[in-house]
């Protein structure tokens, strides 16, 4: 290895370190932010279900509201009971996928009709920014931060 190879190697490690540091500083939702479970699936496009985040510690997905009415396959009640272990199915392009929610551990895909099973091997996600992707099924489960949505009582004006 030449000296320039070593410099290159150090550069890659340094870039990765910056990435990790960036995630450590900006990845955790602040107290007024929410953790949003973002679900993309072919059957109903993209849907969001928001969850309050308790001081950066994942306690459980608890849905306060859902922006998509057409969450076929996921009953809102399933998501609302955040304290309990839950399983639910969504329809992927190749067939059904089984999602598993375990309190304190996160969300994982435990079963999917895809050749490489990358989504299943990804395991639990529980932090903002993490995601599970199943490209053959066109399914993506992502946890993202979002600004809190105001309650209906806070609406300043309604234009008609």
């Amino acid at each position: 290895m030449s000296r320039h190879d070593w410099i290159l190697l150090a550069g890659i490690v340094f870039a990765a370190a910056i990435g990790f540091a960036f995630q450590a500083f900006f990845g955790n939702p602040s107290e007024d932010q929410m953790l949003v479970l973002h679900l993309t699936a072919p059957a109903y496009g993209s849907a969001e279900a928001s969850a309050p985040e308790d001081a950066g510690v994942f306690r459980g997905i608890k849905v306060e509201r859902t922006t998509a009415e057409a969450l076929e396959g996921i009953s809102i009640a399933d998501l609302e009971s955040g304290g309990e272990e839950r399983y639910w199915q969504i329809q992927g392009a190749n067939g059904p996928l089984t999602l598993h929610f375990a309190p304190g551990q996160g969300i994982e895909i435990i079963e999917a009709q895809c050749p490489d099973q990358i989504c299943v091997r990804t395991g639990f996600i529980r932090k903002a920014g993490q995601s599970i992707v199943c490209v053959p099924n066109e399914v993506m489960v992502a946890l993202q931060t979002a600004e809190p949505t105001k309650d209906k009582g806070d609406v300043d004006a309604i234009l008609q």
């Binding site: 993309t40 066109e138 992502a142």
Partner: peptide
């Protein structure tokens, strides 16, 4: 992957992939 899924969330894993690339 991000083009196919229409979502950039996967780039969260870029630092890990950089480390493993070494």
């Amino acid at each position: 992957v991000s083009v196919l899924m229409g979502n950039q969330a996967v780039f969260y894993y870029l630092p890990w992939l950089l480390v493993w690339a070494v």
